[in-house]
Amino acid sequence: MSRIVMNQLTHPQRVRLLYKTILRLHRGLPAELRALGDNYVRDEFRRHLTCNPMEAQLFMTEWARYASTITQQLGIRGKPKGELGEQIDPDAVDMLKDDQVVQLYELMLAAKGLGDDTSTVNDIRGK
């Protein structure tokens, strides 16, 4: 979409467009990743409905970057061209709030298919 058209959209329209784009991109993911990703995206977008403008800008920037990364990893045909995802920058993790670290940890457990009460340090480390 051209930059001129994007600038003419209201903030809620841009959010909705990004949300729908991400869900569309998730169609190219394996079924279990798609379900996990779709649920996570829905939860995150709902959670940020009432955030302040500075948080909203950061939220939109990061999710647009995610959409761009997924687009590159899935390619034109929407099929994974290799490994999906990327490593999290340790400096970025250090900047997260406590509740965000917990949320990230829970996402990691869900992605690895671990139950809350059955995971151990060795499970998390992949041993």
Rank of each mutant, 00 (worst) to 15 (best):
Asp116Trp: 11
Glu86His: 04
Thr21Leu: 14
Asp91Pro: 00
Met54Thr: 13
Arg65Gln: 13
Ala67Asn: 02
Arg46Gln: 03
Val101Ile: 11
Thr71Met: 06
Ser119Tyr: 07
Gly113Glu: 06
Arg77Asn: 14
Met1Cys: 13
Thr10Ala: 10
Lys112Tyr: 10
Lys79Asp: 01
Ser68Cys: 08
Ala92Gly: 06
Gln100Asn: 04
Val102Ser: 08
Glu62Ala: 13
Asp99Ile: 14
Arg34Asp: 08
Pro90Trp: 02
Lys79Pro: 00
Ala110Tyr: 00
Leu36Gly: 04
Lys81Leu: 15
Ala110Val: 00
Val93Ile: 07
His48Arg: 10
Ile88Gly: 01
Gly113Leu: 08
Arg47Ile: 03
Tyr66Gly: 02
Ala56Asp: 13
Leu84Thr: 00
Glu44Ser: 04
Met108Cys: 14
Ser2Leu: 09
Val121Ile: 10
Leu29Tyr: 00
Pro90Ser: 11
Arg42Glu: 15
Arg3Asp: 09
Leu58Gly: 11
Ile22Gly: 00
Asn7Arg: 15
Ala64Lys: 11
Leu33Glu: 02
Asn52Pro: 00
Val102His: 09
Pro12Gln: 15
Val101Phe: 01
Glu55Arg: 15
Lys112His: 12
Asp43Thr: 01
Thr118Met: 14
His11Pro: 14
His48Val: 01
Thr21Val: 03
Arg14Glu: 04
Val121Arg: 10
Phe59Ile: 07
Gly28His: 05
Arg3Met: 06
Ala31Gly: 01
Leu74Met: 08
Met54Glu: 09
Leu96Ala: 01
Arg34Trp: 04
Gln87Gly: 10
Pro80Lys: 09
Asp94Gln: 09
Ala56Met: 13
Gly113Lys: 05
Thr61Cys: 09
Asp116Gln: 08
Thr118Ala: 11
Ile4Gln: 12
Gly82Ile: 13
Ile70Ser: 05
Leu36Lys: 05
Gln73Val: 09
His48Ala: 10
Gly126Lys: 09
Ala67Gln: 02
Ala110Gln: 04
Arg42Asn: 15
Leu109Ser: 05
Arg34Leu: 01
Asn39Ser: 15
Ala111Lys: 07
Ala92Ser: 15
Leu33Met: 12
Arg27Val: 07
Met6Gly: 03
Pro53Phe: 00
Met95Ala: 14
Asp116Ala: 12
Gln103Met: 04
Leu18Asp: 00
Leu104Ile: 01
Leu84Gln: 11
Tyr19Leu: 05
Lys127Asp: 03
Lys20Met: 14
His11Ala: 13
Thr120Val: 10
Arg34Asn: 05
Asn7Met: 14
Asp116Val: 15
Asp116Ser: 14
Leu96Tyr: 03
Gln73Lys: 10
Gln8Pro: 01
Ala111Phe: 05
Glu62Lys: 09
Met108Thr: 15
Gln87Cys: 08
Arg3Leu: 04
